[in-house]
Amino acid sequence: MSRYVINRVGQAVIVILAATLLLYAMVYAMPGDPVRALVGEQRSSQLDEATVAQIRARYNLDRPFLVQYGLYLKGVLSGDLGTTFSERPVTEIIAQALPVTFRVAVLTVLIQAIIGIGVGLIAGRRRGGLLDGSVMVVTMVLIGVPTFVSGYVIQYFLGVRWGWIKPTVSAQAEWSELIVPAAVLALGSMAFLIRFTRSGVSEALRADHVKTARARGLPEWQILISHVLRNALIPIVTVLGTEFGALLGGAIITEAVFNVPGYGQQVYQNIIRGESAPTVSLVIVMVVAFVLVNLIVDLLYAAINPKVRYVSHA
């Protein structure tokens, strides 16, 4: 087990390093002069050579690429993710937006897990039945509807027409305010999760070990939970984990619809404003979060699948 953990952590570190290098190189290779971007198109023509050199030196732009990257990495490791043009530290932006996005992601995955696995289990148990058929139709519709449509529709009816919720989220972005945006986010991939669970359950139901468990006289609920769902869950955990990791990067469209002050909005605004250094930092945090979540999912996978756990040091 410990060997497996060490291996996976080592891999994660390598992935994060490679991703930062790649991102930094991509921004470095972008056309346009960063000094111009910093001071603006018009004023840059008025700058004298000395000022330009001074700015370059300040941001290490006069050094070779790898040195720049090394200095950047050094900054990152000491907690300095750079500042925006308006001298606002990127760490501050992250500290503000990330918790909001984290709350949205947790709620989304919870909604998906409860409804997706629940409905998938019922549909998979009676495959070909009436309920299964209607679930299939509904999920097909859900897959077809893009989030900005479902988001606006739900916002209009729940928020504007019936007034059950506030149509937009406040700056504090409390848990309760985020339930509806999270539900909208959950809708799209929930259909996928239902189908995934359904096929996993109906496959597990046909397994020899389930037949043998029945023949031993185990109660039906135990067979369903402990032998069918438990085995079907193994791949589902991976799906949910990946989903959670992706959600930490923010959901630009849904956040825009409900005016959620989340991570996606920050990244979007920084890209629009041409803030290259903060963009790199924000995206790198996104990558790190994604890799970390996947690492946790892998370790969790080993915990629920003894075969992975033991093969790794057999």
Partner: peptide, 28 residues
């Protein structure tokens, strides 16, 4: 279905064909 439970595994034992597939791999 309820009555079956006092027969299956209690009065009738079942030994399956393929031992490789007949134990649940996720449980000890």
């Amino acid at each position: 279905r309820r009555a079956w439970r006092s027969f299956r595994g209690r009065r009738i034992g079942y030994i399956p064909q393929d031992p490789m597939l007949s134990l649940n791999e996720v449980w000890s």
